[in-house]
Amino acid sequence: MKSLIEFYQHLGWALSLLVMMTFVLAGTVKGMIGLGLPTVAMGLLGLAIAPVQAAALLIIPSIVTNVWQLAIGGQLKVLIKRLWPMQLAIFFGTGLGVLWLSVDSASEVVRGLGAALLLYALSGLFLPALRVPVSAERWAGPMCGLITGVITSATGVFVIPSVPYLQALGLSKNQLVQALGLPFSVSTLALAAGLYWRGKLGGGELNASLLALLPAMLGMWLGQCLRERISATLFKRVFFIGMALLGTHLLISG
C-alpha cells in the first residue's frame, strides 16, 4: 500500500488522472471488441510516463480483465473443449520463446506484426470472410497457438496469428470476444511465469497496478454494454476497424 501511494504521489494529480482515464478508455475498447487494452494504455501512458512504469501498471489490469472476458458469455466449456489444443500450444510456445529468445522486442518484428494486422483488418473490411474448415482445426489450432506463443514471448503482442484464426472460425460476436479471452489469458500467464522464472518480473510499481484495475474494469463494463447494443454487422465493422488501428499503432510505434 505504501508503494502504491508513493507511486501516485510521485506522479501528481494530473498524471494520476491521466492514468485513470486511460484505463477507462482502454478497458472500454477491450470490452467492446475483446482486445486492445495493453496497446491503448501503453500508447497513451507512454506520452507521459516511462515505458517501464506503464508496463508495470498494465500487469494486473491485463490479467484480471482477460479472466473476466473469458468468464463472461456462457460458452466457456464449449470453447475450452474446442480450443484447448491451441491454448496448450500457446503455453508451450511462450515457454520455449522465453527460454530461447530475447524478451526485448525487436522493432522490426513489431512493425511486421503491425503491418500483418493492418492487412488482415483491411481484408476483413473489404474482402469475403475467411473460414477455417472444422476438419482443419485439429492441426491449424495447435500450429497457430505455437506461433502465437513464440511471437508473444519475443514481442509481448498476443494477436498474431491467434486473432485472425479465431475470427475465421465463424463464431458469433459474443463467442468471439469470449474466445479471445482464452489465448490472451494463457499468453499473459505463461509470459508472466516465464519472466518470473528468469527474475525479470517484480518491482515496487507492481502494487500501483491494483488501483489501475478499478478504471479498467469500469471500462470493460461500459464496453460490454455497448457491444450488447449493436448488431452483428456493426460489430464486425468495429472489430476490424479496431484491428486496423491496432496494426497501425504497432507499425508506427514499433
Rank of each mutant, 00 (worst) to 15 (best):
S185L: 02
S185T: 08
S185H: 00
S187W: 03
S187T: 04
S187Q: 04
L189M: 07
A190C: 14
A190H: 05
A190K: 05
A190F: 10
L191K: 01
A192M: 13
A192Y: 10
A193L: 14
A193T: 12
L195W: 08
W197K: 13
R198F: 09
R198L: 14
G199N: 14
G199Y: 15
K200E: 15
K200A: 13
K200N: 13
K200W: 03
K200I: 02
L201P: 02
L201M: 11
L201A: 11
L201K: 07
L201F: 09
G203E: 10
G204W: 14
N207M: 04
N207T: 12
N207H: 11
A208D: 03
A208W: 01
S209L: 02
L210H: 10
L210Q: 09
L210T: 10
L211P: 12
L211T: 13
L211G: 05
L213K: 11
L213G: 14
L213S: 15
L214E: 05
L214G: 03
L214M: 10
L214W: 09
L214T: 10
A216P: 12
A216C: 06
A216M: 03
M217T: 01
M217F: 11
L218D: 08
L218K: 11
G219F: 08
G219Y: 02
G219M: 11
W221R: 06
G223Q: 04
